[in-house]
C-alpha cells in the first residue's frame, strides 16, 4: 500500500520530540549543558505539538476530536494520552526550571524521562499497526521506535548545545549521541531484517501465492510480485538500504562529533540522516503492506 504520510510524519515528530525531551531531562539530572536546556525544551515542545498537529490533520472531524480518548485499548488512544502526559510534564519542567533558576528537581527530570519513554513505546505500537502484526513484530516495532528516539534525542540536544554554547568543546551528553546513533542503526537494521525474515516465511513464500489475476476496480494495476512484499525486494530495496545506510552514517557523524568535540555541522548532519532513516523505515513498512501474513497485493 502507499505510505500513510500524515502517520509517518506524526510518528517521526513524536519520537523525535520525546527523545529530545528525555535527553533534556537526562542533562538536567546530570547537571550538564545548562545553557542548552531552555532551547532544547522549546524544540522538544514544538516537535511534540507538530506530531499532535499531524494527527489532527489526519482526522476529518475536529469537532469529535475528544472521542479519540474513548477506546483505551487502542494504541492510538494510548499514544494520545501519553502525549498529553508528556506535554504536561514539559510544562511542569518549565515551571520548575523558572522557579529554581535552571536547576530542575531530580523527580521532575526522572518523570520526564519515564513519560517520554512511555510515549515512544506507544508511538512504536501505533505506527506499526499492531493489530495484524505478529507479537514479535510488535516488540520489534517498539524496539525500532525506541532506537530511533535514542538516536534523535541526544543528537538534537547536542546540536542545540553546540549552537547555544559555542565556546564549549565538550559534548553535552558525553558519548550518548554516538551511542544513540549506534543503537538506532542496529534497531533499524534489526527491524528490517526481522520484516524480511517474517515475510519470507509467510504464505506468499510457499509458492501457492497468486501468480496472475485482475482487480476490476483497478484494472491497470499490476499484480504485486512476491518481492514487493519484502523490504529488501522490489521497489522497496533502495529505500530499505537507504534507511540502514542513513542510520549508519548518522552513527558515524555522531561518533566523529564526539571525538572532535562539539561541531554543530557534524551533529546536524547526523541528525538529518537519523530523521531520514526513521522516516524511510516507516515508509518501507507501509509500502510492503501492513498485513502480518504478508499477502500479495493487486
Amino acid at each position: 500500500m502507499i505510505a500513510q504520510w500524515p502517520l509517518v510524519i506524526a510518528s517521526v515528530c513524536l519520537a523525535w520530540g520525546a527523545g529530545l525531551f528525555a535527553s533534556l531531562c537526562a542533562a538536567s539530572l546530570a547537571g550538564r549543558a545548562p545553557r542548552a536546556r531552555i532551547g532544547a525544551w522549546v524544540v522538544a515542545v514544538i516537535l511534540l505539538l507538530a506530531g499532535a498537529l499531524g494527527f489532527m490533520l489526519r482526522t476529518s472531524h475536529w469537532d469529535r476530536l475528544f472521542n479519540s480518548f474513548a477506546h483505551l485499548a487502542s494504541p492510538i488512544t494510548q499514544e494520545l494520552i501519553c502525549l498529553v502526559i508528556v506535554i504536561a510534564l514539559a510544562l511542569v519542567y518549565l515551571v520548575a526550571y523558572r522557579r529554581s533558576e535552571g536547576e530542575v528537581p531530580a523527580p521532575v527530570s526522572a518523570a520526564g524521562i519515564a513519560g517520554a519513554a512511555l510515549l515512544v513505546v506507544t508511538v512504536g505500537r501505533s505506527a506499526i499497526v499492531p493489530a495484524t502484526t505478529p507479537a514479535l513484530g510488535q516488540v520489534m516495532a517498539v524496539v525500532a521506535a525506541c532506537g530511533a528516539a535514542f538516536a534523535l534525542g541526544p543528537m538534537s540536544f547536542e546540536l542545540v548545545a553546540g549552537i547555544t554554547d559555542r565556546q564549549s568543546r565538550k559534548t553535552a551528553l558525553g558519548a550518548f549521541s554516538a551511542i544513540g546513533g549506534g543503537v538506532g542503526a542496529l534497531t533499524t537494521a534489526g527491524y528490517l531484517a526481522y520484516l524480511q525474515a517474517a515475510r519470507s516465511a509467510a504464505v506468499v513464500g510457499t509458492g501457492r501465492g497468486v501468480e496472475f489475476g485482475v482487480d476490476p476496480t483497478r484494472p491497470q494495476a499490476s499484480i504485486a510480485t512476491k518481492a514487493s512484499l519484502l523490504p529488501f525486494g522490489g521497489e522497496c530495496l533502495p529505500l530499505a538500504i537507504a534507511a540502514i545506510g542513513c542510520a549508519v552514517l548518522a552513527f558515524a557523524f555522531a561518533l566523529a562529533a564526539c571525538r572532535k568535540g562539539v561541531r554543530p555541522a557534524l551533529v546536524a548532519m547526523a541528525l538529518v540522516l537519523a530523521v531520514v532513516s526513521f522516516t524511510l523505515l516507516l515508509v518501507v513498512f507501509f509500502m510492503t503492506g501492513t498485513a502480518g501474513a504478508g499477502a500479495a497485493a493487486f
Binding site: Q4, L7, F55, R58, T59, S60, H61, R64, L65, N67, S68, F69, A70, H71, A73, S74, P75, I76, T77, L80, S126, V129, P130, A131
Partner: peptide, 29 residues
C-alpha cells in the same frame, strides 16, 4: 476494532463489525 481510538468500530452481538458514524473521526487508522 482494536486500533479504533474512538470505539466507533464495534463488534456487535450478531458477530458483525459495524461502524458508528457519529463516533468516527475519520482518522483512517
Amino acid at each position: 476494532v482494536s486500533v479504533c481510538p474512538t470505539g466507533a468500530s464495534k463488534k456487535m452481538d450478531d458477530g458483525t463489525v459495524q461502524i458508528d458514524k457519529e463516533q468516527c473521526i475519520g482518522c483512517q487508522a
